[in-house]
Every structure is written in structure tokens, then in C-alpha cells.
Simulated assay, not measured.
Amino acid sequence: MVKNIFLALVCGLTLPLIGCVTTNSTQIVTPKKYIVDRETYQATGKSERIKSIVLHYTVSDNARSINTLTNGQVSAHYLILDHDDNKIYNLVPESQRAWHAGNGGFAGRTILNDTSIGIEIVNSGIKHEYRDALKNGELDYHPYEHYVEFDELQIKKVGQLVQDLAKRYDISPKNIIGHADMAPSRKIDPGAKFPWQQLYFDYGIGAWYDEFDKQFSMHQDTFAAATIADIKQAFRDYGYQINDSDEWDKASRNVVYAFQLHFRPQQPTGVMDLETYAILQALNKKYADRDDFY
């Protein structure tokens, strides 16, 4: 009894100084709370975490796309359905990592899930009657006519969404890419009928070459004198991952095909030719001043 009275008197006298309480004769010191100051000092050596936007098609219908992207082991930040519901669905917060890109790389980065926004668009990809053509050895690559068209409403939604994202995160035009661009040996989406050129001219998003530079390069025919090493380095300069073999092996042709799907979609062959090289040169000339390797 006397001991408890004594402790109470001690705490009463010292509480303003150290903040103590008694619990079963045990003294607890309350630590001082410190303020996190986010305004007084700011570093200049920083940049946005989001560096790229990767566009995909789902190869399924609305219901299955929703189920896969909300309940499966794959996800994306945004989903665009193929009917007019006036909505763009945000499935993963932009501050969090979505599982959409997988193995591959672009512009010097190899783990794009960490630094990208993924957008899935409901689209069947390849028309049903052509889906087994590669498996059966009938052709090496799907031509333009094998792909499924996108709805115009979907493209409007993509345009609005990517415009906003690119502005907010200051994303380089070169880093607005398709899944095929970063994983050419695994993926072909969003395919030959995804309208990159329309999005560039109508919405000012993504990269596209200047026709004059392309035609000038074709007229000069620098392709005739270019070595395989020269051409592959030009792909690397733009951002594509490509091996350094001295031949156009399947992995290298996959990169050519992915590039053509993006920039020459009506003739995606996987074969390196004069026009493809001229487009690549025109792109490198136009975007040479963009430092995207950071």
C-alpha cells in the first residue's frame, strides 16, 4: 500500500518531464513523436517510377477477360471492354505493380512490371480459322488479314487513357509500346490491326516516323550496304532487345516481325528489307535526342 502511494507521487512529479505511467508497478516511457517534413528540402535527382505503357489484347471475350484479370495470376492496371458502357476499368492502382508484362525488355529495362502501366483491350487477336496456322507449319508469321479489328470506341478510350497517363508520368513516345515490342519471341499483341498511326496523329501519343525521312532513306538505299550487325545495333538504339548473332535467326526475325506489327502493320513478314530499315532509321533520327535509358 505504502509502495503504491510512493510510486504514484513519483509519477505525478515527473510526468511532465518523461511521461510515465504505472502498470503493475512497471514504469513505461512514452517516446517523443517526430515530424516527417516533406517540404523543407527536396532532391532534384529523381524521376517518375512509371517509365512505359504496355498495350495488350486479351484473346478472349468480356466475361472471360474480367475473370482472368481479376481472379487469375495475371493482371493489368486498366481493362477496356468491347461494348459501349462508357467506362474504362481500373483493376490495379497505378501505385501498385500489375502482372502483365512478364519476361522481356525495352529501352534498357528488363523488368517492366516494376516500371510500367499495363492496359488490356478485349480483342480475339487472331481470327479463329487461322489460329492453328503457325502450329501446323503453314506459315512463319500471321499476316495482316489474320488479325481481328478493334472497335472504334475502344480506340477512343485508349486514346483518352494513354494521353492522360503519358502526360502525368512524362512518358517518352518511344516507351508507349505493345507487348510484342518487349517480348517478341513470346507475344504478338496488340497485333497488326492495332492503329498505332491513328493514335499518333489523332491523339498525339506514341511514336511514329516522318514519311520524308523514310522516303529519303529508301532513296539512299543504305540498307544495301548495312551489315547485320549494323541493323541489329539500329534496333538496339531504338530500344528493342535483339541478339548479336551474325544471322537472321528465328529470335532476330521475331524482333523484325514485332517491329513491323507496330510500324508497318499491313506487311508484317519477319523479313528484314529496305522499307523496314528505312522506317527504323527514320525513327532513330526523329527520337535520337530522347534519353530513355534511365
Rank of each mutant, 00 (worst) to 15 (best):
K3T: 14
I5L: 09
F6R: 02
L13K: 09
L13R: 07
Q27F: 14
I28F: 15
V29L: 14
V36A: 10
D37H: 12
R38I: 15
A43N: 10
G45T: 10
E48D: 12
I50V: 14
V54C: 06
H56W: 01
T58V: 13
V59L: 05
N62I: 10
T70C: 08
S75L: 05
A76T: 14
H77G: 01
L79W: 00
K87A: 13
I88H: 01
S95E: 15
Q96E: 15
R97C: 07
H100C: 09
A101Q: 11
A107T: 05
L112G: 04
N113M: 02
T115Y: 03
T115K: 00
I117Y: 11
I119S: 02
V122M: 05
G125Q: 02
H128M: 06
Y130S: 03
D132G: 10
A133T: 06
L134H: 04
V148W: 00
E152Q: 09
L153E: 06
I155F: 04
K156W: 03
Q160N: 09
Q163W: 00
K174L: 15
A180G: 04
R186D: 10
R186M: 13
K187M: 13
P190W: 00
A192D: 03
Q215A: 13
F216V: 15
M218H: 01
A229H: 09
D230Q: 11
F235M: 07
F235I: 09
G239P: 00
I242T: 07
D244R: 13
H262Q: 11
T269L: 15
G270H: 03
V271R: 00
M272N: 01
Q281R: 12
N284A: 05
N284E: 11
Y287D: 04
F293T: 10
